Amino acid sequence: MVIVLGFSLLYLWFILFPGKVAPEALHYFSAEQISQGRDHSRSQQLLFLIGVLTEILLIVWFIWSGKAAGFSGWLQRANGGNYYRSSLLFFLALWVVLRLIHLPLSYFGSFYLQRKWGFSTQTLGSWWLDYLKGAGLDLIFSAFGVLLFFWILKHWPRTWWLVGASLFSIWLVVQNFIWPVVVSPLFNRFEPAKDPAILSMVNELASKADIPVDEVLVMDASRRTTRANAYFAGLAGTKQIVLYDTLLKNYPPDQVKAVIAHEMAHWRQGHIIKGLTLGIIGNFLLWGLLFIFIRSVLPPSRYHPPYTWALTILFFLTVSFATSPLQNTISRSMEKEADQVSIQLTGDVAAAIGLQINLVSKNSSDVSPPAFIEWFSYSHPAVLNRIHLLQQTNINP
């Protein structure tokens, strides 16, 4: 908790007092763009910090005030001591409270501000439909996970952390297969790309990268946002590239090519597999630490009461926040490597730099964030750092 408090205070300080903008930023962006980027980033960062701290402080109060244990005991008595029903009801109650607390922040951040800044193309009804779909999926997957969690606690009281880590690691792999096929189509439509120029571009880059691409799909991102992106999906022998329709509509062909090359570079360098591997290793470490944490809080017993779930949520919230710098440092390293490899694939430094400038301008990003903010919360290098890297990249003949 000390680390969380320290990072929170530093994060808040640099949000409110970001310091001077690097003079070099004016070479690429206007003063108005720089100011808008700062304002937009500040609002998003404040919402993130408020959301995380609100959840953490609420659960800390809930546990250490004794109310979690009291509510847990009441549920057990009301349900005749039924272990799984009491645990599930405890989860549901906590899930609803956290959802209700976070709802205003979700609305303000993902609808109101996105409309204000001109990024969202959704109506309020469409936003609510997406929110309810997402909440429903979260409820279903989480409820199943909670029941499985308490089943593991009951049957493996001393090695439950090892069983839990193993099952969750399997889930990390499985979701890469089911998410593009089952979940993503619930929110967007995907159609095969028909533009011969795009297909030719993908085939050319795939040949250079030595990556088989089974499908090139276009996603109707414009029904929700003006933002552009692309990503690869699939593992093993099935690979597909998904292009936002906003990317194809609003960016010139050489910059579209730069985006595709960047995503292919992730595959060529094995970042997806490396990310999964690191995730699995970290997963086992976290479950081991969770085991130690719960044993230090609960009295020694083979029985784990329903409020064990509140302890688990608190643990993962705090650890996720405290380890953000590590996670983002690894992510930025991969992004830098993908930028360099993408230049080898396209041979076009100017297009890659133009893409970064265009993305930041259209997305109103902070062009010169404080070093601490970038280190703590940026999964990609800040734009000036990316431009420096791209300029220094040598193109192989």
Rank of each mutant, 00 (worst) to 15 (best):
L12A: 15
W13T: 04
P18I: 02
P18W: 14
P18M: 00
K20P: 01
K20C: 06
E24A: 14
E24G: 04
A25P: 09
A31N: 06
Q36Y: 13
S41Q: 11
R42P: 00
S43R: 15
S43E: 12
Q44V: 00
L46H: 11
V52E: 02
E55P: 01
V60T: 13
V60Y: 09
F62M: 10
I63C: 07
W64E: 05
W64H: 15
G70T: 06
A78H: 12
Y83S: 01
F91Y: 15
A93W: 12
L94V: 11
V97Q: 09
Y112K: 10
Q114I: 02
K116V: 04
W117P: 01
T121Q: 13
Q122D: 08
S126G: 14
W127K: 06
D130N: 07
K133L: 15
G136C: 05
D138E: 12
I140H: 13
I140R: 03
F144H: 01
L148C: 07
I152D: 01
L153Y: 08
K154P: 00
T159Q: 15
V163H: 07
G164S: 10
A165Q: 11
L167R: 09
F168G: 09
S169M: 04
I170S: 05
L172G: 02
N176K: 10
N176S: 13
V181H: 10
V183P: 04
S184K: 14
L186A: 09
E191W: 12
A193Q: 05
V202R: 12
A206S: 15
D210W: 10
P212C: 03
V213Y: 07
V213Q: 10
D220V: 06
A221W: 03
R223W: 07
N229S: 12
L235C: 10
K239R: 15
Y244A: 05
D245V: 03
D245R: 04
T246W: 09
L248S: 03
L248Q: 06
K249F: 02
P253L: 10
D254N: 14
Q255W: 03
A258T: 03
V259L: 08
M264I: 01
I272P: 01
K274N: 04
G275T: 01
I280R: 09
I281F: 11
F284Q: 09
G288K: 07
I292V: 08
F293C: 00
I294Y: 05
V297W: 08
P299S: 10
R302I: 13
Y303L: 11
P306K: 11
A310S: 15
T312W: 13
I313Q: 03
S324I: 00
Q327W: 02
R332M: 05
S333Q: 14
S333G: 15
E335F: 08
K336L: 12
K336N: 15
Q340N: 10
Q344D: 07
T346R: 09
G347T: 04
V349C: 03
A352K: 06
Q356I: 02
L359N: 02
S361D: 07
P370T: 07
P370F: 14
W375R: 02
Y378M: 01
L389A: 13
Q391K: 13
N394T: 14
I395L: 15
